[in-house]
Simulated scan of single mutants.
Amino acid sequence: MRPWTSREATSAKRAPGRLVVVGAGVVGVEMATAWQALGSQVTLLARGDGLLPRMEPFAGELVTERLRETGADVRFDTSVEGVRRVAGEVHVTLPHGTDVVADEILFATGRAPRTEDIGLDTLGLAPGEWLTADDSLTVTAVPGSWLYAVGDVNRRALFTHQGKYQARIAGAGITARARGERLDSRRWGAHSSTADIEAVPGVVFTDPEVATVGLTVADAERTGRDVEVVDHEIGHLAGALQYRPDYKGRARILIDRDRQVVVGATFVGPGVAELLYSATVAITGEIPVERLWHAVPAFPTISEVWLRLLEARRNA
């Protein structure tokens, strides 16, 4: 039947007339956004009740709204019961015997590590499994700390930029060991990969963009963290109106009540990816909220959302 995966979806030479996307995660919504914009009639099928379920609910809601405005058919609480290709068309069977007919179907329901044929069995590891690595990126199940695993294969943070970050750390460790040197945490890159835990930034390249780092409200509740939740409508900013007169977006930060530092941030709106590094610095650097008042954003820019968030917290 040859369904699309993310590889085919990012390398196809022409837009299919009709495309079914199965999956509500990052890849699913990014590809639905891209192919709808390129001229395909997209039907997006989500098993749950919203898109981007691991992010703040308003992120998925705004992306859903925009997808539907552009003509995409977004369906929730829908599972795929069968897929077959008939005379070149893909017939997708949904519950209650209904079908969706398309030219191609993309399954964006997760990825598996490609470790089945690289000799893991010779080390007592199971081929086809993830490689668990510690903060130095060495594989914990292999004695001697000589085997390193960076990138998606260790499942610490499935982003290209996090893989690059891990590679710098692993490279510093490997080089130091080869030279018989002791790792010096003051040297750039020679430290443990703590940013895989507390401050993992990610961008969903949809319309609108979604940028997130650190905890969500659901994360805080699950881990018992006591946080303040502060929201602001980005579209109320002068800089947002200059960027796009009909700008629609939202910002949220989470503040640890005990430590008085930002532990999570989510931005949704056009161009918000460029706000993410400042949030990552605030979380990684554990900057006290009171100090953030003195990081003055330029007027009129979208970065003024930081000032508005602090004002909203003060006036709450």
Rank of each mutant, 00 (worst) to 15 (best):
Y165A: 00
A298Q: 14
R252I: 09
G124F: 05
G285E: 13
F205T: 07
G60N: 04
P3G: 05
D207Q: 14
L158C: 14
T78P: 10
A59L: 05
T138D: 10
E65M: 05
T160G: 04
P208Q: 09
E221I: 03
V263A: 13
V26T: 14
R182P: 04
R14H: 11
L38N: 15
A282S: 09
R222N: 07
Q41I: 08
H232G: 01
D135N: 12
L158D: 12
P113E: 02
V200M: 13
G249M: 10
T109Q: 02
V92S: 01
L120H: 05
G128S: 13
E81C: 03
G124P: 07
E129P: 05
G82M: 03
R84D: 07
S11H: 14
L45G: 13
V200P: 05
V139W: 02
G60V: 06
H191A: 13
V217Y: 01
V217P: 03
A72M: 08
V261Q: 12
A298S: 15
L52F: 04
P95L: 08
E286P: 07
V153W: 06
V229L: 08
G239R: 04
E233K: 00
V268E: 10
S40N: 12
R47G: 11
R68Y: 03
I118K: 02
G235I: 08
I253G: 15
V204P: 03
A112W: 06
G25V: 06
L276W: 03
V200R: 15
I169C: 11
R177T: 09
E233Y: 00
P245A: 10
V83M: 03
R250F: 10
T10I: 14
R111M: 07
F107V: 02
V21N: 10
K248D: 11
R308M: 12
A295I: 15
I287E: 10
A312M: 08
W146P: 00
R68M: 15
R85Q: 09
W35M: 04
